[in-house]
Write a protein that binds this DNA or RNA. Structure first.
Length: 202
DNA sequence: TGAATGATGCGCT
DNA sequence: GCGCATCATTCAT
């Protein structure tokens, strides 16, 4: 079976230093066995949010009901609701007790684009998942999936040995503090990076 | 074609 | 009440 040749990312992968994990995530495949079918995409853009000293991190002012999973074990999905209408998906990193996570900002659709497209039609291929809110909308992820274990069989990441020639770094997007840190990573050669107006036909 | 803005709900002070 | 790890649309240039 195909699943045998792809290695699912395990707990140890996520437990490492967040910036290492973030860089390694570019080119990996995210798979979601949703109620409507299996969706998958190639990750092309992420951002790191690390600990209590990062002013932009949700954990900067301590543990709250919302950010609890960030303080838990690595390899868990942290999903929050934002701007009254969007969701953002993060992967919890670092050993338990060290709050940190990686925001998934953009991906290239692989399997079941039509399912993603049913939620938002007339999209072009590389415009379907090119933003954190758009990714969750395309995949149908909401707070109901907050806390899902990424080492399980519902939502997980795997290594497809996808080639990434150039990983670019930049300041994180959409925040007002911590903008001096170059904690955004993206595949320079992808057309699905957020903010790219071009896009290509399906 | 770049900048400004409205939509919309919830977590946190 | 305020502000937010966003996005699509509108408006000005």
């Amino acid at each position: 079976m195909n699943s045998k040749i792809f290695k699912k990312l395990n707990r140890f992968f996520y437990s490492r230093p967040t910036l290492e994990v973030a860089s390694d995530l570019i080119g990996k495949q995210i798979v979601y066995n949703s109620p409507n079918g299996t969706l998958s995409a190639r990750i092309v853009e992420v951002e790191a949010y690390i600990g209590q000293d990062d002013p932009a991190c949700h954990a900067a002012r301590g543990k709250t009901k919302r950010n609890t999973v960030m303080f838990g074990k690595p390899g868990i999905a942290y999903i929050y609701f934002i701007y009254g209408m969007y969701h953002c998906l993060n992967f919890v990193t670092e050993p338990e007790g060290q709050p940190a996570a990686i925001l998934l900002r953009a991906a290239e659709p692989i399997d079941n684009m039509d399912l993603m497209g049913l939620r938002k039609t007339e999209e072009k291929r590389f415009h379907l998942l090119n933003g954190p809110g758009k990714f969750c909308r395309g995949f149908g992820l909401t707070r109901e999936q907050n806390g899902l274990d990424l080492t399980g069989d519902i939502l997980y990441l795997q290594d497809r040995n996808s080639v990434v020639e150039v990983i670019e770094k930049s300041p994180r997007i959409g925040i007002k503090v911590g903008t001096d840190l170059l904690w955004r990573f993206y595949d320079k050669n992808s057309n699905a990076v957020s903010g790219n107006k071009k896009g290509l036909p399906i």
